[in-house]
Design a protein around this nucleic acid. Structure first.
Length: 208
DNA sequence: TTCCTAACATAATCAAAAC
DNA sequence: GTTTTGATTATGTTAGGAA
């Protein structure tokens, strides 16, 4: 793919989901649920989504934003003045009382293949592209979003490790030169972000 | 048991819409 | 222009399941 075509694809696909506008009634239900439990499990979020006629992923984002903006405001001690051990205890307590998560999605080889191909083209897909992809592989759009998030994390972690290892090997030699080694015919340079996206796990290699 | 990775957390930031 | 708040990001943690 040419650079221009590639960039135009990024621009065309990099658009956000349109803002959700909750009604007063919806807000009442959400706030009430938040006051009962600011960390709802999947079943509760799903139930709320049905009740106010929206997607579960919108409920998740709403709770995230609400926790960030209201709970810390109400209890600044949580974020600032608690000793780290106390904070740890608090988080542990929360984790123990937390409702169950969504069941783990298990992707098939062909679904993974589609996702990886898409990631290599554009690791930051916009809402429409994610939706299109979700339709193609038959999962909710929110799962595609989570998959891309995790994949980017993996890429960043992998690149950090590569950099560290190459620095160790080269012992202070030119850093850029150090990470321009090739592996299985793929170049991984410090500025070739997208070619670096080709991270295949042992399992995926077996799969594809 | 270990490893991989989906799910989910916070914190920071972007950006649309209301004022 | 400012404020509010939904959407998205990076980064880190938790936990399910395959090897």
């Amino acid at each position: 793919m040419s650079q221009a075509k590639f960039l135009s694809k990024i621009v065309s696909t990099h658009c956000r989901r349109s803002r959700t506008k909750f009604t007063e009634d919806q807000m009442k239900i959400l706030i009430n649920a938040f006051e009962q439990n600011p960390y709802p499990g999947y079943a509760t979020k799903q139930k709320l989504a049905l009740e106010i006629n929206t997607e579960e992923s919108r409920i998740q984002v709403w709770f995230q934003n609400r926790r960030a903006r209201h709970q810390l405001q109400k209890r600044p001690d949580l974020g600032k003045t608690l000793e780290s051990s106390q904070r740890h205890d608090h988080l542990e307590e929360q984790t123990q009382s937390r409702e169950p998560r969504r069941c783990r999605t298990s992707y098939t080889c062909s679904q993974l293949h589609t996702l990886i191909e898409a990631f290599m083209t554009n690791p930051y897909p916009g809402f429409h592209f994610r939706e299109q992809l979700a339709k193609e592989i038959g999962v909710p759009e929110s799962r595609v979003q989570t998959w891309f998030q995790n994949r980017r994390n993996k890429l960043h972690a992998w690149r950090k490790r590569e950099l560290r290892e190459s620095l160790e090997q080269d012992q202070g030699q030119d850093m850029i030169q150090g990470i321009q080694g090739t592996q299985n015919g793929t170049n991984f340079t410090s500025n070739s972000y997208f070619s670096g996206a080709r991270i295949w796990t042992k399992r995926q290699i077996q799969c594809i």
